[in-house]
């Protein structure tokens, strides 16, 4: 009886595992390509974010230069009036 139960259980497991379908090699490759594309996109985003930060710094610097030039212009106009 005991042996019969063990054999039956084993047969059920074998049948159950054999019946569930698995992805084929092409499908697994598809998943790997997708993961690689995501990694590449993450790198590109990181590069773009660095570029964006550099541009923001450059614009802030140029805004300060422009502001300084406008102030200088006002000062020179005042000094010219005083001449």
């Amino acid at each position: 009886m005991k042996k019969t139960l063990i054999v039956a259980g084993a047969v059920v497991m074998l049948v159950a595992s054999g019946c569930s379908s698995k992805p084929n090699a092409e499908e697994l490759q598809q998943l790997e390509s997708l993961k690689a594309e995501v990694a590449s996109l993450e790198r590109e985003i990181s590069t773009k974010e660095s570029e964006k930060s550099a541009l923001n710094r450059s614009i802030a610097d140029k805004s300060a230069q422009l502001n300084q030039c406008e102030q200088d212009t006002k000062v020179v106009q005042e000094r010219l009036k005083g001449m």
Partner: peptide, 14 residues
């Protein structure tokens, strides 16, 4: 056989 089947069953399913 049961052990091998168990290991194989851990692979990705569809």
């Amino acid at each position: 056989l049961v052990m091998v089947t168990g290991v194989l069953a851990q692979e990705m399913t569809k």
